[in-house]
């Protein structure tokens, strides 16, 4: 079997910011990880092109949530408001980075929010997203940006909701593939850094495969101080997986994104049903 180097380094952590409470949680988590990994923190604010284009519809009105008054949307004013918001987010990023003593930078782009975030994520070692942004979705339902990154993103992505933090245990969905081994290494590194216990959700069918996978796990963990507990799941059913994860605790879940039955809507559904931070390993 291939030996995957048991190391995990981050150089740049990307955090798309939109002033929602979820993105603020994502920012604080990103700063913690950046400090632990000596990485750079990058904040990204996207001026939503759809919003700006909406201003060109003369019949469109902005409805105020304080009393329901309607007013004409002015493009210049909207751009000004977006600039103000960008400055404000930059200030928050600077404060958080200073608190954690990490280097940082801030970018503003204009375009479709999912597309811009997806593009920026290409150059980041880890992208951390708030679970739901400003879009009018229910809590625990993922926003459009998250859905885009879940379905089309590459590299390491962390999806986190307001109020979440890194608590024990760290959980890994292990299938025995190289990607799942990568996920295990990343989880190991995190558990060591944060001093968290480790739980493996072994997604295999058949006893023979189970023995084989267990053997591989032992190989990987040989010499490590961590000895994880193992929970076997026969079927890659999002509901069963979610149930198992919830039963172990609110700790972060590492998902290697390759199992066909755990991609697309199934993966969205799994992420939405959890109260855990979710690392997508690709």
């Amino acid at each position: 079997m291939n030996q995957v180097k048991a190391s995990f380094t981050l150089k740049r952590i990307l955090v798309p910011l939109d002033a929602s409470k979820h993105s603020m949680t994502a920012l604080n988590i990103a700063a913690e990880l950046a400090a632990a990994q000596e990485a750079e923190l990058e904040g990204l604010f996207v001026e939503d092109i759809n919003l700006l284009q909406l201003c060109e519809f003369p019949f469109v009105r902005e409805i105020s949530v304080w009393g329901g008054t309607a007013r004409f949307i002015d493009r210049a004013e909207t751009e000004r408001q977006l600039r103000v918001r960008a400055q404000w987010l930059k200030g928050i990023l600077a404060d958080v980075a200073k608190t954690h003593n990490v280097p940082w930078r801030f970018r503003v782009t204009r375009g479709g929010v999912p597309a811009e975030v997806l593009a920026a994520a290409e150059n980041a070692d880890l992208t951390i997203l708030g679970g739901a942004g400003w879009s009018m979705t229910r809590p625990r339902m993922t926003g459009s940006t998250v859905r885009t990154l879940v379905s089309r993103g590459r590299g390491l992505t962390l999806i986190i909701q307001q109020g979440m933090s890194f608590q024990p245990p760290v959980q890994v969905l292990f299938t025995g593939t190289e990607l799942s081994e990568k996920a295990l290494f990343v989880a190991l590194a995190l558990s060591r850094k944060k001093d968290l216990s480790l739980f493996l959700l072994m997604l295999v069918k058949g006893e023979e495969m189970q023995v084989k996978i267990k053997g591989r796990i032992e190989e990987i963990l040989a010499g490590q101080s961590v000895q994880p507990a193992i929970h076997v799941i026969q079927e890659p059913d999002p509901g069963k997986i979610a149930s198992a994860v919830r039963s172990h605790g609110p700790g972060p879940l590492f998902i290697p994104c390759e199992e066909p039955r755990l991609l697309g809507e199934s993966l969205q559904e799994l992420i939405s049903s959890l109260n855990n931070p979710v690392f997508l390993v690709r």
């Binding site: 759809n50 919003l51 469109v60 009105r61 409805i63 949530v65 949307i73 909207t78 977006l82 879009s135």
Partner: peptide, 11 residues
């Protein structure tokens, strides 16, 4: 329905 900086609008 989309969020604007100070409210929301339909598109």
């Amino acid at each position: 329905l989309i969020k604007t900086p100070t409210g929301m609008a339909f598109a």
